[in-house]
Amino acid sequence: MNAAAPAVKPKLLVATTSLAGCFGCHMSLLDIDERLLDLIDLVAFDRSPITDIKHCSPHCDVGIIEGGVCNAENVHVLHEFRKNCKILIAIGACAINGGLPAQRNSLDIGDILAAVYALPGRGVQVPNDPEIPLLLNAVHPLHEVVKIDYFLPGCPPSGDAIWKFLTDLLAGRTPSLGHGLIHYD
């Protein structure tokens, strides 16, 4: 018998972020509850709200992105993820079809800003500090900007759906949700 100890599998490096999202999908990731301990045996978190690391390491294995693209900064972050992650996953309704933020797409962005920043007696004062990312004319799903490898729908996807999806992926299978786990709401 070969008594050699099995080689320790290196942990996969996972980066996550929320663009034009509500962090609900990240909350749902935490909803996998005690299975987080199993997950942490398999993966290490890179750039993520969980670690507060500000930029992706150059060789991340998986990038998980919630939210669509609504401003210039979102575009930069999305490109950073695409450049540094081997696999990109769009998680949640907003990342997949724009979701709630995309409800503004039927309106003119100038009209929206004028309505939101109209101050009584002082006209319209739209904030223009260069630190503030410029809004795009319309909110776009991620796959309209960069290549996305996998999609995990839901608003948010349940903890069980996220767990099934990630364990399938980590085991080298094509993620498959099936009845009860696949949801668009």
């Binding site: 796959h143 999609f151 729908p153 099936g178 696949i182 668009y184």
Partner: peptide
């Protein structure tokens, strides 16, 4: 759902 449509 039944057809497993995961994206648009």
């Amino acid at each position: 759902y039944a057809l497993g449509v995961m994206n648009p």
